[in-house]
């Protein structure tokens, strides 16, 4: 990898003061599980690396009556194993526990999971044309695209959103706390956090190059929630399709309200499946309703040449995520 100057600030303000107004020359380092691989492949070639691991304020989990705050530097293992988080937000903790293996979960962080770069093999191969690296075309649209987006309308770059924590966080109505220069703080709904990138000056999120995520706030509303992943490998990989759901009620024949069904790894950003939400809203969750929600979720899908199979996987994942959150038997587990 290209050599760089390394900084290890101890406060978030110091970290922000080290950032620049453009992408590329200065990169943030937390667990390093994404950045170091990108550097070794010469996809990221920063001249400066700002480590966030010396900032104690990013490491806290605060469980309150109204909301839960998780610092951006909290590791995936701590999220997966936290008893209160497991009780309140299984959509988040089950996803955290399914990431990588123990080593990745001990290293990777919440902030890094939300801000990780996409997994497109053309993006990660320095020799392939790629819009996000300044190329004039997307290699995936005509190339090997079995793991790419199936919701492709109006997208010139067809990456699949990589974060598995975002999905549950969006369903739960979480917000990201962001710090910029001059101590400027803002709060972004996780639902508005992500961006479909089209060029080298874009990232997969909406942060400015000189902003950092300091943490995530999840409201405590007693929602039933769950996430379900369809995987090719049980560990050390990203899912092919992931669905998270959250709703009030919806158990023991009670109607589900405030239904949020979120899909990931099927479009350049996580997407809220409005049609599926409507299929479930104000209804008791039955097998038939869960199937209808799955069918509604894939309306508008435009798969690529090799990934039509993902449409069916989304239908099934929606059905299973609803089944788990409704407390119904997991019929697929023998």
């Amino acid at each position: 990898m290209k050599n760089f100057t390394y900084y290890r600030p101890t406060t978030t303000e110091q970290a922000v003061s080290l950032l620049e107004g453009r992408w590329g020359n200065t990169e943030l380092l937390a667990g390093g599980t994404d950045l170091l691989a990108l550097q070794k492949n010469y996809i990221a070639q920063p001249g400066r690396v700002v480590s966030l691991t010396g900032i104690a304020g990013l490491q806290t989990i605060v469980v309150g009556q109204q909301n839960v705050q998780i610092g951006a530097g909290v590791t995936l293992a701590r999220i997966a194993d936290h008893p209160d988080l497991r009780r309140l937000f299984p959509a988040l903790t089950s996803a955290a526990g399914d990431i990588g293996g123990p080593q990745i979960r001990n290293m990777g962080t919440l902030g890094g999971n939300l801000c990780q770069r996409n997994r497109c093999w053309y993006f990660r191969d320095e020799h392939s044309p790629c819009l996000l690296r300044g190329g004039n075309r997307c290699s995936a649209i005509e190339g090997e695209n079995k793991y790419h987006a199936i919701f492709t309308a109006n997208h010139r770059c067809v990456i699949a959103s990589p974060s598995t924590l975002a999905t549950g966080l969006i369903a739960l109505g979480a917000t990201a706390e962001v710090l910029g220069p001059q101590n400027r703080r803002r709060t972004i709904q996780l639902a508005n956090f992500f961006n479909a990138p089209t060029g080298p000056n874009d990232r997969e999120h909406n942060l400015a190059p000189n902003e950092i995520v300091t943490g995530v706030t999840i409201p405590v509303r007693g929602l039933n929630n769950a996430a379900y992943e369809v995987r090719q490998k049980q560990s050390s990989d990203w899912p092919i399709v992931q669905v998270a759901v959250a709703f009030a009620g919806g158990r023991n024949g009670e109607k589900a309200t405030g239904v949020k069904i979120v899909l990931s790894h099927v479009a350049p950003t996580p997407i809220i499946a409005d049609g599926a939400n409507r299929a479930v809203e104000n209804r008791a969750i039955t097998d038939a309703i869960a199937v209808a929600a799955g069918q509604a979720a894939v309306a508008g899908a435009k798969p690529l040449s090799q990934n039509g199979y993902k449409v069916r996987l989304v239908e099934v994942a929606v059905k299973r995520a609803l089944t788990i959150a409704a407390g119904l038997p997991r019929y697929w587990e023998v």
Binding site: Y6, L36, A37, S51, A77, P102, Q103
Partner: peptide, 21 residues
């Protein structure tokens, strides 16, 4: 950071040594 051959413990927790500076 995928194969695990570089696994070491840091402060009692396993990590990939190839993926930490």
């Amino acid at each position: 950071g995928t194969c695990g051959a570089c696994t070491v413990m840091i402060d009692g927790k396993v990590i990939y040594a190839c993926t930490m500076l």
